[in-house]
Each structure stands twice: as structure tokens, then as C-alpha cells.
Design a protein around this nucleic acid. Structure first.
Lengths: 251, 251
DNA sequence: AAAATTAATGAGCCTCCCTCATCATGTCCA
DNA sequence: TGGACATGATGAGGGAGGCTCATTAATTTT
């Protein structure tokens, strides 16, 4: 122990590093993300976030209006990362069944990859009264609308029967997914995004498809053929010999 | 003001009424139900519950292990009331479609009649780590199993196609319902249990029902295409670039 | 009527969220 | 180069609310 401390009992303030606002905010948000992930919202303590971010509690409140605001910002940031290049991926997929299946699989995979973060969204963020004002709400809306656009297209083309309220389709897809992963989010067991996506897509597709169009074993066979064609098309683009031979089959 | 008070400044303890344990517990739970309904879990304050129940804060903790325990007991009590004579009602309904529709409608109606209580269950109770130990969890399980029994019966009789994982059916029905009523629970707008039940039942039923026999001319074409797909897939396995790219067929 | 039992009390502890007066540091300009 | 200024950062402390426990008092038992 140094002499000055021992005598005067005054703790010298540690060296203070002043960071530009943006940097400090980023630091705190990254730390907060980790702590929220580990502890959940209620058990996360601002003091710990501050400590691990290398600042004092008051500093957190300088940049965030409160604990709840911090949560919202953290989730928004994460969510925006997630949504990058969704559209580009979907763009390469053909056929209503495949596109629907992709959207569902994708959603399941995000949850599978970061359950703790999704817990925050489902359990904490969405319960709050201010959820509608959140950017997550709006981003989510856009995201689900992309799925509904697929359904709408299929209705327009006659593949799906008409007169189905889109809202209900959305609720059954995303509600079904959520309900499906509840146990996993509670840490009970695992699930396979692939199998689950197959099961959900199967029921939804059959529930919407125009009867008499493609039925029974024809249904399955056609779906499988679509998938094969899809994969072969994508793959063939990579192999000069094949693409020269086959040409573009997708038209 | 009475003299004794003015002089000694000692508040005489008000008359204490000692109630039998069961009575006190019932009183507190009923008050707690009201306060939780009005304020939600987080904004409900034990002191207020105690005050309105005519006891002091410590008394609440004499009968309940904590705030969370109180919530659980309150919800369990309410849930058990709800479930009375479900079976009897279902008994009088014939036909798979009608029975499914009844179960869905019933669920929607419960939510429609007591949104505040359902908010507690969906937003608070079910988020907690101890949900699985709850009686609500078990009661809910039994309840949804009744729906699955209807589906199973229909599969056995051949009305529904086989091989559908029951768990997914359950998730889509109850998840779909929940997602559907989210906005309503947040106090945004209303919904019609009848119309919603029709829409959900419609998709589920069609998603599960056994389709008619395959069409004649489709049959041959499909068989031929299947063979082609088979050969192409096998051939593609011989081209390293493709098999590396495609990988597992299921994603 | 004394003893035993147990319902009920309420002061007060503890943990957190959050505020704010104060201090420190980096920047700009004379 | 040094003083003024803007703003990053501090940390003690206020306040709310969940929860404890030693004490008091009503009721029952002996």
C-alpha cells in the first residue's frame, strides 16, 4: 500500500480515460449485450455492466435513459445485424414451397444460433408497453411482410386459393415457430431447424394450396423435384461444363 | 384526535383480527389477483396488496414465499376455475372440423374474456425459469393434449393423413392463437373469437386432411420426372464442385 | 387462569435503479 | 503557451420496493 493512501485514507481517483461519445456508447452496448445474454433482463445489474465496461454507473446513465432503454438499444443493434442481406439470400430461391420453407428455416436458425438474445426479445422486450415504438417492432413487421408477399404472390398466381386473411397466415407461421421453440429457449432439449421447418412448411403449404392442383403423392414428388431442380440450378452455375451443357433451365 | 394519542404520540395498534389460515390466504389471493390484473406483475406492489387485503406487508410473506410465488398461486387458482367442465362441453360436439374449431374458439374466448390475466400468464409466468414446475404448465399440457387427441383420432380414422408430428400441430394451433391475440393483449384493437377460430381451423384442417387420389395424367409425368431427378442427383455426386456446394440436401 | 400456540405486526435491512453536484480532460483560440 | 470552454466521467446518495425477524397479541389448550 502506498504511503499517501495509508496516511490520508483518500483513494486517488484512477486515471480517467475520456472516449468520444460514439466509442463509449459502443463499448457499453457491447458489454450490456453480454451481460443481458448471461443474466437475462431482470437479473442483469447496471453496476456490473458499468464495471465490465470500465466505467462507473453514472456514466451508463449519461448515454442511456435507463435500463429499459439500454435493453432496447442493445436488441435493436443486434437485430439490425441479423437482418443484413436477408433479401439477397431469398432472391436466389424459386418456388413458393421453397421460399416459404426458407423464410421459416431462416427464422428457426436465427433462434437456434442465439437463444439468449431471442429470449430477451420474446420474454422481455415484447412484453413491454413501449414495444410498438421500438425499431424492432418495425423491422419485424417488414420481415414478416416479406413472407406474406410470398403468400400473396402464390394467391395471385392461383397456386394458393384466395380469400385467406394474410394476417392469420402470418400468425400461424410465426406463432407456430415461437411456440415450437419455447422449450428450447428455456434450455430444455434441442431442435432441428431443418426438420422443424419441413414440418411447419408442410402444414402451412397444404393449408393454403388450391385443392385439386397437386395432390397426394404428386404433391410430395413435385416438391421434391422443385428442390432438386433448385439445387442443381444453383450448383450448375459454379461448374462451367454443366452450365454450358444445360444452359439456363430456370426459365 | 383522542387524548392518549396526542399526548403520548403512540399510535394504538388497530384491532387485530385473526383469521383461519385458509381464509387469510383466500383473501390475499383475491386481492392480489385484482392488483396484478390492474398493474401487471412488475408494477404491482406487495404493500398495496397487503393494504387492500387489510393486512400488513409481513403477513403476506407469512403465507407466500415471495412475490413470484404469489403470482403463481394466483394464476393457478384462476386457471383451475377456467378448466372446469371443459370436457363436458366438448363431449356434445361431432366431427373433426367442429371439434377442432371448438377447441380453438374456446381458447380464443378465454383470452377475449380476461386479457389481463392472460397477459400475466403469457408475459410473466411463462418467462420464468420455474414455469415447468408450475401446475399451470401441467394443466396446460393436459388441455392441449385434448386437442391433439382429436387430431390423432382423425389420423386413425384416415380423415387426416398420417406421419404428421403432433407436436408441430399443437405448436401451430396454440402458437398461432397466441400470436394472433398479441396486439389485443397490448390493448390495440379487438378481435372476433368466431372469425379468428374459423380462419385458424380452416388452415389447420386443410393442412392435415388427406387429399383425394392423384390425378391420372399427373401420375405418369411425375414418375418420369422423379426418375430424371434421381439420375441427376446421382450424377451430381460425381462432380466434386457440386457435391461440395450442395452438401446435405435438407438445407 | 396460566401456558402454549400461532396469527399479525411493523421497523428496518438490502439491493437496485437512477440523479446530480462536482471534477477532470481534451480542445480551441488569443 | 496558457486560459476559457465544452463535455466526458465520477461517486455519493436518494428512493422504491422486496423481504426478514424480533416482538406483540389473539386464541386455544390444559
Amino acid at each position: 500500500m502506498r504511503n499517501a493512501q495509508a496516511v490520508s485514507n483518500i483513494q486517488p481517483r484512477r486515471q480517467i480515460y475520456r472516449l468520444p461519445r460514439a466509442q463509449r456508447v459502443a463499448d457499453i452496448m457491447l458489454t450490456a449485450r453480454a451481460v443481458f445474454r448471461e443474466k437475462g433482463y431482470n437479473d442483469a445489474v447496471i453496476a456490473e455492466i458499468a464495471l465490465r465496461a470500465g466505467v462507473v454507473e453514472g456514466t451508463v446513465y449519461r448515454y442511456f435513459a435507463g435500463k429499459r432503454d439500454l435493453l432496447i438499444k442493445v436488441v435493436e443493434h443486434w437485430y439490425e445485424e441479423m437482418l443484413t442481406d436477408y433479401d439477397r439470400q431469398l432472391h436466389g430461391i424459386r418456388g413458393t414451397w421453397n421460399r416459404l420453407r426458407f423464410m421459416i428455416w431462416r427464422h428457426l436458425t436465427v433462434i437456434h444460433n442465439d437463444p439468449a438474445m431471442c429470449r430477451l426479445i420474446f420474454n422481455e422486450l415484447r412484453s413491454g408497453a413501449e414495444y410498438r415504438e421500438t425499431a424492432v417492432f418495425e423491422l419485424n413487421r417488414e420481415y414478416t411482410n416479406r413472407t406474406l408477399a410470398i403468400v400473396q404472390d402464390a394467391m395471385d398466381s392461383g397456386e394458393f386459393r384466395g380469400g385467406i386473411p394474410l394476417r392469420i397466415v402470418r400468425d400461424m407461421i410465426y406463432g407456430g415457430v415461437e411456440h415450437h421453440i419455447w422449450a428450447f429457449l428455456r434450455g430444455e432439449g434441442d431442435f432441428s431447424p431443418e426438420e422443424s421447418a419441413d414440418g411447419i412448411t408442410d402444414i402451412i403449404y397444404r393449408g393454403l394450396v388450391r385443392p385439386g392442383a397437386a395432390i397426394d403423392r404428386g404433391e410430395q414428388a413435385i416438391r421434391r423435384l422443385e428442390e432438386v431442380a433448385e439445387r442443381l440450378e444453383q450448383a450448375s452455375a459454379l461448374v462451367p461444363e454443366i452450365s454450358r451443357t444445360i444452359g439456363n433451365a430456370s426459365c
